[in-house]
């Protein structure tokens, strides 16, 4: 359903727009099936964030194209929605107001968007926190708001840019599990950027390993661990350790 074809992106120097500063993406191609959970994994500077931002339509690629259901996309659209690394919450809006933001832009009437927002807040376990301001709740809760805001738009593809990078380890595991639970209830496709090997193996059906300079795909690794993964201790499964070792090796080489 999502196809990335020979995508390339070069960043030029800020003060000398004719001088190339970084080849962020070079000839990147892959495709994602409907309802698949794909992780983009790599060291910093490998272009994974650039890639997801191009897919989101926030920046333009220099070469190549992106197709969703066969139609090329170059700008943000209703079919895709982004969850940001630093949450991207508007600090002057309450939790409820933040979830409503996307619906408000779509011009959905007040009563209706209230109701939708409350439903999604409940889904991410934030019932009762509607009137808090972002700075009054923890980082983990803030990202739940970010997720609720993205889900409320019911996108076909959920784009997540290191969404759990800014929260502590314990909260992170909890959020991973909840994300899997929510995903299992919907038919959303997820593209998830991370630099944690464990996170990528635990969450995804497929890990796309990237490397830097120029930013490109190293290899794709299928993760054929049983689902649901939150029951039992999937991380103790020998296949988990095997995949982890294999990806680590790939990242190193």
């Amino acid at each position: 359903m999502l196809e990335v074809r020979q995508l390339s992106k070069v960043f030029f120097e800020q003060n000398d727009p004719s001088k190339p500063g970084l080849v962020a993406l070079y000839d990147v191609s892959f495709s994602v099936r409907k309802n698949e959970f794909v992780c983009l994994l790599g060291p910093s500077g490998c272009g994974k964030t650039t890639l997801i931002r191009v897919i989101a339509g926030l920046i333009q690629a220099d070469r190549g194209e992106i197709r969703v259901d066969g139609k090329p996309v170059t700008a943000p659209g209703r079919d895709r929605c982004m969850v940001f690394q630093q949450f991207g919450l508007l600090p002057w809006r309450t939790v409820l107001g933040n979830v409503e933001f996307g619906l408000e832009i779509d011009g959905i009437p007040r009563e209706q968007r209230r109701e939708i927002s409350r439903r999604y807040l409940e889904l991410v376990g934030l019932h009762g926190f509607e009137n808090y301001y972002p700075h009054q709740i923890s980082g983990g809760m803030q990202q739940r708001v970010g997720i609720a805001r993205a889900l409320s738009k019911e996108p076909d593809i959920l784009l997540m840019d290191e969404p759990f990078g800014a929260v502590d380890a314990q909260t992170r595991e909890q959020l991973q599990e909840e994300l899997l639970k929510i995903w299992s209830k919907t038919d959303t496709t997820v593209i998830f950027v991370t630099h944690s090997i464990d996170e990528s193996v635990y969450l995804s059906d497929r890990v796309i390993v990237m490397q830097s300079r120029p930013g490109r795909i190293k290899e794709e690794v299928r993760v054929e661990l049983p689902r649901p993964r939150w029951e039992g201790d999937v991380k103790a499964d020998p296949r988990f350790a095997e995949l982890r070792a294999r990806i680590r090796e790939s990242l190193r080489g």
């Binding site: 070069v10 220099d62 300079r213 120029p214």
Partner: peptide, 13 residues
């Protein structure tokens, strides 16, 4: 680096 230079030439931006 060399790989990036190569990529740039390929892309012919």
């Amino acid at each position: 680096n060399a790989l990036e230079q190569q990529a740039l030439t390929d892309l012919d931006l």
